[in-house]
Design a protein around this nucleic acid. Structure first.
Lengths: 239, 239
DNA sequence: CAAAGCAACATCCTATAGGAAATAGGTTCC
DNA sequence: GGAACCTATTTCCTATAGGATGTTGCTTTG
């Protein structure tokens, strides 16, 4: 049963601890980067062959991804990648982000340690040198940096439950953003630095307010995307 | 391969659509009702034999439950039910509930339809006749009714993302409450009715305030539980 | 020409078997 | 008497095979 020597030369990164974990990360990346396009059927067997594993760990990873909201499962019809965000879902996402991330910023300003405040300030400053690169790469780097900044604040807020909720929200955001390159990188950086300054100063109310202003502005920057492409609506259960 | 006639007489309820779904609900109930005690190892094969299915759907259900936070998975050591809430985790839970459910109550007051307002009012009123029953049964019924009320408000708030977050939080709460019967049923009912009245009247601010007052009071009612039993602390990764 | 029915196909879902790792217990050595 | 090492067992993890179901395309009929 020569199943080990075939493991070389696969397109997955070096294995973590369990195969299921690797497969989970691999598929998550495939969905996040839209290599598996939104709203498309996911063939378990084909995916297993592609990753050079048996269908069982693929099935297990898909079950976790469904709980994350990145794929959907129709009972006897297989898995499907979650379709693109509709306008209503996008608005809902930012409404909830406003609520949750306003709170994380305020709490971060109150609870963060000295070392954590420095990390946040550094992260906001590091956002500048993403000007390098071109097109897709540059946009992907910017998106990753933005996510890192927001996740860092959620991490520092000192509430595991709040952090989980925010992280879950962010993975939903990726279902929209990668398709629509935005041009507001400089504005985003200054807004980030304003948030970082308020947190460093320990001013909870100012931090929350700066975060809410940032999210409101970011929401406005993303809006034109819905005019460029036909709105996908919510064609998610065509029965 | 006589695998169908063995399906009769199992302790699972009638099958929904897929076996994995049934198994998921079954295990979820086992964890919620503490038939699988918190912090205990979960043997996949034993569970599969108990439910009279193969390990594969059990494994899939466990993966979903891990995403829900009801079980944990240590890479090469199997699954474990999530341990009891520590004092710090309990405080965190109610902090986040205060934030999220205050928002759901306010939004429910603004967005609910006439029919939905009636359902909420009816649900709050129905909370009275749980005085019947004894001990465990009575407490379980009260807990279920409380969860239904809060979930209903989250449902009506008109934000799918917010509803998911709240629902997720509630499943965490079950990890604490069932072990410590509380005596505040009458107070809970009046508080629920006050919330329902504010929502029915369409007063967002009053509804949010009533919800926050309710949660603050409920938190106080639960607190003595930590004095009755030795605090479990956070013995979750004994290596 | 359109719609309904049928059949073939592809895919998912479940069951079983075997290899690998971690845990637990006993033994031995210090 | 205690700690470290080794061995045996248990358990998890992965792979493969077969049955049931949904889906798709074609044919036939009105």
């Amino acid at each position: 049963m020569a199943q080990h020597e075939a493991r070389e030369g696969r397109l997955r990164p070096a294995r973590r601890l369990t195969l299921s974990e690797d497969v989970y990360e691999s598929i998550k990346t495939l969905v996040m980067d839209h290599i598996l396009p939104p709203g498309e059927r996911v063939n378990i067997d084909a995916l297993a062959r592609e990753l050079d594993v048996s269908p069982t760990p693929v099935r297990e990873a898909l079950a976790r991804l469904e709980a994350d909201g990145l794929v959907r499962k129709r009972p006897l019809s297989g898995y499907t990648t979650t379709p693109l965000l509709s306008r209503a879902e996008f608005d809902d996402l930012f409404d909830v982000r406003l609520l949750l991330e306003g709170a994380t910023a305020g709490r971060a300003a109150a609870h963060a340690s000295t070392e954590e405040r420095q990390r946040i300030t550094a992260e906001a400053a590091a956002s500048i040198d993403v000007e390098a690169g071109d097109g897709y790469r540059r946009h992907a780097a910017f998106t990753a940096l933005d996510a890192t900044f927001h996740d860092l604040i959620a991490e520092v807020a000192g509430s595991p439950l709040l952090r989980d909720s925010v992280t879950r929200l962010h993975s939903h955001l990726h279902l929209h953003r990668l398709y629509f390159p935005v041009t507001g990188a400089p504005a985003t950086n200054t807004e980030h630095q304003r948030i970082a300054a308020a947190i460093a100063a320990g001013d909870s109310e100012a931090a929350a307010e700066a975060m809410r202003a940032h999210l409101t502005a970011a929401r406005e920057r993303h809006l034109p995307a819905f005019d460029q492409l036909p709105d996908p609506g919510t064609p998610r259960d065509p029965v």
